[in-house]
Design a protein around this nucleic acid. Structure first.
Length: 282
DNA sequence: ACCCGTGTTCGCTG
DNA sequence: TCAGCGAACACGGG
């Protein structure tokens, strides 16, 4: 479920699992050529023998810095819709849909698994992430840098899009996705159909607080999901059958958690589902 | 069988 | 040049 909170959880996992570890072997799974760029065997081999130095996150992007004999190497990972980094013992089989497997020097193996293949993993020469246009275009990260409400208000003033759709623009607020947009607008009491340009500065400030609250709320629900195995330090993040952790997303027909009177409605905006309370979101 | 899905990118239009 | 729109990507789950 990769929006900012899930990607942040992935970044924390990767730090615990891999920082300081040496990558001893690399294996490409089915579909690797689709997610891994460049997909050549030579590019893959650059990973072997490197050591993981640092894991950062910007929006939904994971930025790993590896140290190779010939200097720093960047590994940029975007989870798409269904991407996950998972840790296994090297003796255990890879998870389903593993596309890339990295054997670490402590007997564990990092697997990048991705059912739908919308995720991407790519090498960045010299770990110079700042030189990549797609990354440079991203606005400040809400969790790391906070939200500059006046700046967001100024950007909204130029947009003809409904505020819910405008929130998905990663150049404004990287990391906010379809779920967090619905969640934050409900918390803020704002109608997702309103033109972004119609929001007052006070409303944008309320929305900014709501976005941070929603991200932190979701992150707190994700954090306890890591587990220690009985006889080792392997931690699994997957938790099948967990209940819907969201307040309005996926809850069409439920009583609104904000006003406790309206019923959550589902509408479609820009071909994506939006959940909101028609009674209290104005 | 049909519809839906946490994200991004591409081609087209105005 | 660019904001906005719809389709495309891929494949399992309900």
């Amino acid at each position: 479920m990769p929006e900012l909170p899930e990607v942040e959880a992935a970044a924390r996992n990767l730090r615990r699992w891999a920082v300081g570890r040496r990558i001893e072997a690399v294996r490409a799974g089915a579909g690797a050529t689709r997610i891994f760029r460049p997909a050549s065997a030579r590019a893959l081999s650059k990973l072997a023998g490197s050591r993981v130095r640092e894991v950062k996150r910007r929006g939904k992007n994971l930025l790993l810095t590896l140290e190779t004999p010939s200097g720093p190497l960047g590994l940029w990972s975007h989870l798409g819709m269904t991407g996950k980094w998972l840790l296994r013992a090297q003796d255990d089989p890879s998870p389903r849909f593993s596309r890339l497997a990295l054997d670490l020097d402590d007997g564990t193996r990092l697997d990048y698994a991705d059912l739908r293949l919308f995720g991407r993993v790519r090498l960045v020469a010299g770990a110079r992430f700042d030189e990549l246009p797609d990354l440079r275009a991203l606005g400040p990260d809400p969790l790391e840098d906070g939200i500059d409400a006046p700046a967001l208000h100024a950007r909204f003033a130029k947009s003809k899009l409904p505020v819910k759709v405008a929130l998905l623009d990663q150049r404004l607020l990287p990391g906010v996705g379809n779920i967090q947009a619905s969640e934050a607008l409900n918390r803020a009491g704002l109608d997702p159909r309103r033109p972004a340009r119609s929001l007052s500065l006070a409303e944008v400030k309320t929305l900014a607080r709501a976005i941070l609250a929603s991200i932190r709320f979701t992150l707190a629900k994700l954090a306890p999901r890591g587990r220690h195995g009985a006889d080792g330090d392997i931690e699994y993040v997957e938790e099948p059958g967990t209940p819907n952790p969201f307040r309005v997303y996926g809850r069409e027909g439920a009583i609104c958690p904000r006003c406790r009177k309206g019923k959550i409605a589902r509408i479609v905006q820009a071909a994506r589902a939006t959940f909101y309370c028609p009674r209290c979101q104005r």
